[in-house]
Simulated scan of single mutants.
Amino acid sequence: MPVKYNLSEKGNPGNPAAPKKFYANAKSSGEVTFRSLSKEIAAGSTTVSDTDVMAVLNDLTKVLSRHLSDGKIVRFGDFGSFQISLSSEGAETAEKFNISMIKGAKILFRPGIDLRDMLSTVKYEKEK
């Protein structure tokens, strides 16, 4: 199934006088829940139930959160890696920087090879 997209017209913030252009925006076609993922993973195994998978994934979420909050990069092998990224105000010198200048944090995900390869073969279709 292709990834659906729609178009939105946007101006150039660096040059408001420039003509606006149309850009593609990916549109979701639904969602997959934690429970349905667990059932799907369990269906591929003869030894674990969806409850077992849910318990492991739930613990994985807790462990991932703990290691990220400790400032670690968490590598999931071929799946990819997670890391914290910060945004802050700038300071004129290192000595003038203080923690109140940190404005937010986000979690970066860097996909592994299989997910990157999927991106090179994904099909697209304009939403009707």
Rank of each mutant, 00 (worst) to 15 (best):
S45M: 05
K39C: 03
R35Y: 15
F79N: 01
E40V: 14
F22E: 12
V48G: 00
G30R: 09
N58T: 09
T93P: 05
E89Y: 09
G14D: 03
T46I: 06
A42G: 01
F79K: 01
E40F: 14
P13L: 15
S85D: 08
A26F: 05
D52T: 07
V56N: 04
A18W: 08
S36P: 04
G71E: 03
S88N: 13
E40P: 13
K10S: 14
V32N: 04
R66Y: 11
D78F: 07
A91K: 12
S28Q: 15
R35G: 12
G90A: 11
V32I: 06
S81P: 02
S65T: 10
F76L: 15
E40T: 12
E89A: 12
R66K: 06
T46R: 14
K62Q: 11
L68Y: 13
L86C: 10
A26D: 07
V74S: 00
A43H: 06
P13A: 12
S49E: 14
S8G: 10
I73S: 12
V53K: 04
Y23E: 00
S87N: 09
L7Y: 03
I73E: 11
L68R: 05
S38W: 08
N58C: 05
L68F: 09
L7R: 04
K27A: 09
V32W: 01
A42L: 04
L37D: 02
P19T: 06
S28H: 10
R75M: 07
A24W: 01
Y23C: 00
F22A: 15
R66P: 00
D70S: 10
D50K: 07
D52F: 10
G71W: 00
A91G: 15
T93F: 11
V63I: 07
N25F: 13
G14Y: 13
D78H: 10
Y23L: 00
L37F: 14
A91D: 14
T61P: 02
V74I: 06
T46A: 07
S49T: 15
V48I: 12
S88V: 15
S49L: 09
L37W: 05
A24Y: 09
V74F: 02
E31W: 10
V74R: 00
L57C: 03
A43D: 04
R75A: 08
P19H: 02
S29D: 07
K10P: 06
H67F: 06
E31R: 11
E92H: 11
F82H: 02
K62L: 13
T47E: 15
S85R: 13
A17C: 03
T51D: 15
L64P: 05
K20R: 15
D78I: 11
T46H: 08
L64Y: 03
S88K: 14
